[in-house]
Amino acid sequence: MSDDGRLTTMEPDPVWDEDSYEETVETLRDLDDDVVFKIWGGDWCKDCRSQLPAFGAALEAAEISEDRIEHNPTEKEDDGSKTGPGVEEYGIEYIPTVVVEDTETGEELARFVEEEDVPIAVYLADELDGQVTTTN
């Protein structure tokens, strides 16, 4: 975690290829100011270190402003449970977890939890694609 409370694992992967994810980036860009991305992770976490840099690169490529990205550094207790900001409120058990919420209503629109068959950005863009066209 950086001095400002940001997850260092969210630093964009410099070799991430935006052209390979054109539709994903466009969907995320189309979200405009309608959503906030709430990210739970730990710089100590192997899954976070492997997945979050590409997600950070996708958010950067989509020009998502920093004020719409909320970092929630998470620690692991001896019993395996997670602690940190919003962990109980959002029922965070596994990391990385990314929750996308509507900025106006606070409604949860999509959630990525730890591992899917596709990268975080692709998973969320697929989940949000139908919702984007109805909100803009």
Rank of each mutant, 00 (worst) to 15 (best):
D34C: 09
E22K: 13
C45E: 02
L7N: 00
E66F: 10
G86S: 02
V113Q: 12
T135I: 13
V36N: 05
L109N: 05
E77Y: 09
R29D: 03
D30K: 15
V122L: 11
T27S: 04
E26N: 12
T83C: 08
F55Q: 00
D47A: 05
A54G: 08
T8H: 12
E93W: 06
E70C: 06
T8Q: 13
L52Y: 01
R49L: 14
P96T: 03
T97W: 06
D78A: 11
W16M: 05
V132S: 05
P119M: 10
I120N: 03
E18Q: 14
V132A: 09
K82S: 07
Y94K: 13
Y123T: 09
P85I: 05
A110I: 07
V35I: 07
E108K: 13
P85C: 03
A125H: 09
Y21C: 04
F55C: 00
G84K: 09
E89S: 15
I95G: 00
D67S: 11
V113A: 10
A58N: 02
G130K: 11
E108R: 14
D126R: 08
T8L: 13
E63M: 03
S50C: 01
D47E: 08
I95M: 05
M10L: 15
L59R: 05
L31A: 03
S20D: 15
S50I: 07
T103W: 00
T83E: 12
H71Y: 04
E18R: 14
E88D: 15
L128T: 00
L128M: 09
E107L: 10
E66S: 15
E11P: 02
P14G: 04
T9D: 14
D34F: 10
P96A: 04
V15L: 08
P12Y: 08
P12M: 10
L59E: 02
H71G: 01
K38Q: 11
D32W: 07
G42Q: 00
V132P: 00
V36S: 11
P96M: 04
D13R: 04
I92Q: 02
F112A: 08
E104D: 15
E101T: 10
G84E: 04
E11T: 14
D32M: 10
R49W: 07
L52S: 00
T97C: 09
E22V: 10
W16I: 03
T133I: 12
W16H: 06
T105C: 10
L7P: 01
E114L: 02
W44Q: 06
Y94R: 13
G5Q: 06
D117Q: 13
V99M: 07
V98N: 04
T135G: 04
S65K: 14
D17P: 05
C48G: 01
E18Y: 06
V98R: 04
L59C: 05
I64S: 04
K38V: 14
S50V: 08
D13W: 01
E116L: 09
D102H: 11
P119C: 07
E108N: 12
K82G: 02
E116K: 13
R29Q: 09
E18A: 15
E77H: 13
D117W: 07
K82I: 06
